[in-house]
Design a protein around this nucleic acid. Sequence first.
RNA 1: GCGCGGGUGGCGAAACUGGUAGACGCAGGGGACUUAAAAUCCCUUGCCGAAAGGCGUGCGGGUUCGAGUCCCGCCCCGCGCACCA
Length: 890
Amino acid sequence: MARAGGRIGGHSGILDGSLQPVFQPMQEIYDPAAVEAAAQRSWDEAGTFRAVEDPTREKYYCLSMFPYPSGRLHMGHVRNYTIGDVISRYMRMQGRNVLQPMGWDAFGLPAENAAMANNVPPARWTYDNIATMKRQLKALGFGLDWDREVTTCRPEYYRWNQWLFLRMLERGVAYKKTGTVNWDPIDKTVLANEQVIDGKGWRTGAVIEKREIPMYYLGITRYAQELLDEVEQLAGWPERVRTMQANWIGRSEGVTIAFPYTLEGQARQLKVFTTRADTLMGATFVAVAAEHPLAAHAARGDAALAAFVDECKRGSVMEADLATMDKKGMPTGLTVTHPLSGAAVPVWVGNYVLMGYGEGAVMGVPGHDERDFAFARKYSLPIVQVIDVAGQPYSTDAWQAWYADEGVCVCSGRYDGLDHAAAVRAIAADLQAQGCGSLQVQWRLRDWGISRQRYWGCPIPIIHCDACGDVPVPDKDLPVVLPEDLVPDGTGSPLAKLRSFIDCECPACGKAARRETDTMDTFVDSSWYFLRFASAGNEQAMVDGRVEYWLPADQYIGGIEHAILHLLYSRFWTKVMRDIGLVKISEPFSNLLTQGMVRNGIYFRKPASGRVVYYNPTEVEVLTDAKGTPIGARLKADGEPVESGGIGTMSKSRNNGVDPQAFIDRYGADTARLFMMFAAPPELSLDWSDEGAEGAFRFLKRLWKAVHTHVQAGPVAALDRSALAPADRDLRRLAHQTLAKVGDDYGRRRTFNTAIAAVMELLNAITRHDAASPDARAVVHEALDIAVLTLSPVVPHVTEALWHALGHPGSMVDETWPQPDPEALVQDAIELVVQVNGKLRGRISVAVDADEASVRAAALADADVRRHIGEMTVRKVIVVKGKLVSVVAA
RNA sequence: GCGCGGGUGGCGAAACUGGUAGACGCAGGGGACUUAAAAUCCCUUGCCGAAAGGCGUGCGGGUUCGAGUCCCGCCCCGCGCACCA
């Protein structure tokens, strides 16, 4: 490893002026292209970012979400990977052994769409995109270890998906059952949710139907309790992500209730789950999903009901669609028996009941559930109040929010007077005694269906034999290799039509058999790539001992849109690998940073007829009034007005993306990185601004010029700290305050925008500073060293050049982050503000160590303060140390 | 619909633990330099007001000596909702 070692540790070197600078010749003009090429070449030649396991050094694994190779890098990637690179470079300067890897989430639907559009195999399109994007990542100067590159569409990667799937199958973690998919009846193919628009197929326009097909599932619900318990312990994760995951897993304690009924002479039970068993005596109906066997049974003799069941099966499977549609129902004519009252309860089919959740049936308590209340009013079902809250008047005319509150049972026979908890306990006990129910923990989380009826994904390693059933592919035959030369046509997976792929021998009996043609969800690929980075190149095993050194990742960075699914699946997958004995960790990511979206202005014209045309902001000129307020916009090409659609996430459909490449070509990678980090804190959405980016470039030019001016003025004497002039002391204090602040912002707060603002303030002070005396020159030199050093994680190329220009022989990347000099931070007097009755009325200057009494006296003596107190009597004086004095007078 | 965030000048934002609202930057205005322009540098810029001062962090209320920050209610915007990645 290229680590110079010791030359600038802690208190020696640059910060005490003992180093005699030897200035390098320096260009007057900042030329980003030359500076960046030189810096990147020197890192490449030194192998600076190759990570090597070293048990004697503390590691730092900085992981950014790997990109889908969609074509070219977009601004979201630049933002994501710049955040990771700043943290990586900062940690390296803290002396950590840093691993920052990169790879490609290379399977997925867009490659199939591109393949159809261009008649090119998805593999070809994908590999071309990877080459382009890799070049772009290198141009941005990220300190990545490319020796560990992982590409998920390569057999050497996905064979381990298959291998682990077989291990899960052996343990029953993976299993087969039916699942619901979107079916396009014209193309006769399964569509992704994304391909269903307003309930219709995106290519055919046909009304989509729900269809039940056999699929493989991973039993994530087995880990629900552990996933929930541990997410609450992840102190390094944002609170909001932990809350979202906990809600998604959705533990609820309640009661499973069985409503007995008789069908075709047989005694059966219809099971529902509820967290409000205390309202059971108010249940006036039960509703089942359209796919429920009872619904199917009833529909056989009832054409109207059959039509309704069919109607329920139309439309997409998306939960957001199901939750927003009109609640509709129809009676089946069947009844079940209320397990406590013995009353006959009608069974309805409800379009809002999900077959995949619980047993596909719910009890209807219109008195105390808002949705059931609306349903009962619509279909004239009885509404019964069985819960009373503090004697509030109940009316079935309109829903009131308190109806759903917990209260005391009424009209519930022997349960009257019991509160929520007592009633649930009593009812559960009575149900249990009758064999009609019991207390139960229910999860919102569902098992993970991984089968996809698509080509460009990892083949599921199963062989179907008429004699032996579903037979796992033996380990020795892995990987099941995906042919890379097919082009899909939109009518189902081309794999399912490829005899040479399908036809095979049964591994068990040797007879002719059929290979499974479904592939795995691409979330499988991304659920463990971070482990493979630590075991790169191992052809014998999925992971090896290097994982123990690097994992868990110290920092994971990626978009907030992955807050639930990807992160939950990765946590689950890690636990499965732990239980198989492959890794020792339970949680893969110690710290998580969820970055916000990158947005830009939206401009369009809406022709009288035809589709809306979107114009890229680069093609548009914004018109402003005298104060700079935007008043309109026009197209540069024809000078005619365009409409403004506000600001939105950069997307192809709205044509408001900015290609980072054009920007880098013009201003350089450092300016792109600087603007991205400066414009907003990482967790907030970031609005692109050409002018703002220009400002970032201007700042780098000013920094360059400041160093150039300083260096041109000749040699600098060693800093003599004993007798600095007040102005020099002030600049030195600011420089060391900035050093402390930037380190805190990078390391603890992760607010790169405020770190950069602090360095900007420092540079402003440096350029204003009168550097005539030798002392002043020495202080300016130290301040420039600090400015360049603290900015280096953000803009590593230009700072590398400036570091040399300031007389330091080694590479900036090998520097150690220095400690601020406590002596420089010392301050004698501070300013306090004085409030009178909460309003700012005066400012006083007091000694740093002044006691409360003297601060109080100084505040009350201030002329402005006295004027505002006037005739009033001082009732109270509050002194907040180091901040303010608050005087209460009346 | 459900879950989770967010809303501060003309704009991006800052204010870290309840303590000076608007640091830093962009855009705007004025000036210097220049034959001119660009670039650069200097000054200025929340709103109202001549000033004193008043008002101001989506809206309405509350707690507090003091609220952008805490509490209650509402409005708007963004992300996710299990087959986009």
